[in-house]
Design a protein around this nucleic acid. Structure first.
Lengths: 230, 230
DNA sequence: TAGATTTAATGTTAATTAAGGTTAAAGCGC
DNA sequence: GCGCTTTAACCTTAATTAACATTAAATCTA
């Protein structure tokens, strides 16, 4: 079985590092995000099994993130990390339906117990991307879970970023995708540097996909891309 | 705004008639198909905004149709109508990514709510270019989804703006199109600068189209253009 | 009212700016 | 050190802006 994927949103670097490493040492896979505004893109992109959200965050608080995530997925477990002085009332509202909270400071043991409790509830029914899912792109086949691009007996192993980007393009094939949208999903924001980064990865994918001209990434200058698959 | 187009696949004539008429009375446009085997051709031909698929169907079941449709279009909302005794497990797999299901019997209100929920997810970006659509302009062929203009074996790749403009002209061929109308559609407003911009792009299109004088962009000074295709 | 003249609208071409493409080198994390 | 990602520098192309030319409708004038 694959590792459990944890999306961990935490702005305190020191605490964050400790928790992340502790979880990883217990065989969780952890994606940590520091900025509230980057949580949702990271969620969409990372498709975690559980979210662990600090409540006090820059730009967007944990509860808001929790609501947004819940709107996207009615079942995913969400664990809030709250400061001691948080009012009970507020917390109550978040204590059910796949949510839980835990007060800071907490021990790693507490955290693990709560997480496992929440995960138990959904473990039976939850399923991630079908481990045999396959996206057909013209004469190419993309296996997102394996990060592989197959063509004519040939297997190209994609890096994480490459696979992420291709997944987004594939999910939106034959639709217009805004540049901003991609940048937010893959890099968490649409700053200038990330923007150049996207160019680099588009170029790589175009190279990988160049053997079938039924499959093309068309640039809509000033707008985004159009991944045409006939 | 145009009506929402619903592809409705249902083999029970009585239920089908009621649902179709109810939807139509609520201002949806409905194409109903009775045979599972005819669903996919109808999909391709009708280009609906949403699919409502009964699961139990002659010749091809709704889930299979759903998968085939999903393979063609990663975003279109699909709503399955399932019998009461359908197993939960099976349904779960279809509960995400633009899909939903609803158990029979259902009320029209339920149906509408579910449909609107699904549609909300994609509404912002609803326009999809139909792959394989082709507009014949005299001896030219315009393939909007590929941004290509074909003539006599020759392929001219159009930029986004060029394609946008040509699409508008083509959609209104042999009718008068107001300048203001074009400016608003392509540039979002009809300021002076954009106006000169339009001139530039008209000139480009005229150049591209100059090999067939059955195809002409005629200026109606002070009004707009007339795209004549004989 | 024909013909000249003005004027506003559009055409044409070129220059400028901005977006994105390409390539290579520098960081970074196992 | 290796593979991936990011940063950087430079190149190409598309979109916009600008300058000037042309055209046709509107107005003027004899």
């Amino acid at each position: 079985m694959d590792k459990i994927r944890v999306l961990y949103v935490e702005d305190e670097p020191f605490l964050g590092k400790i928790v992340k490493e502790s979880l990883e040492s217990r065989d969780y896979e952890v994606r940590m995000v520091r900025d509230g505004a980057k949580a949702l893109p990271a969620y969409k992109n990372y498709a975690p099994d559980i979210c662990v959200l600090d409540v006090m965050l820059p730009n967007k608080d944990g509860f808001t993130i929790g609501q947004e995530v819940r709107a996207l997925d009615p079942r995913i477990p969400i664990l809030f990390l709250t400061a001691k002085n948080q009012t009970q009332d507020l917390l109550k509202g978040f204590e059910s339906g796949g949510n839980d909270y835990i007060k800071k400071p907490f021990s790693m043991e507490e955290l693990i117990v709560r997480m496992e409790n929440l995960l138990k509830l959904v473990k039976a029914t939850r399923q991630r991307l079908q481990p045999d899912s396959k996206i057909s792109l013209g004469s190419y086949n993309f296996l997102p879970y394996k990060y592989e691009l197959h063509h004519d007996g040939d297997i190209k192993r994609l890096s994480h970023r490459e696979a992420q980007l291709l997944q987004i393009l594939a999910n939106n094939r034959n639709y217009t995708i805004e540049r901003k949208e991609i940048l937010n999903q893959v890099w968490g924001d649409d700053s200038f540097f990330n923007s150049r980064n996207l160019d680099v990865y588009i170029k790589k994918l175009r190279d990988y996909l160049k053997n079938d001209d039924q499959v093309r990434i068309i640039t809509l200058k000033g707008v985004g891309y159009h991944f045409v698959v006939e």
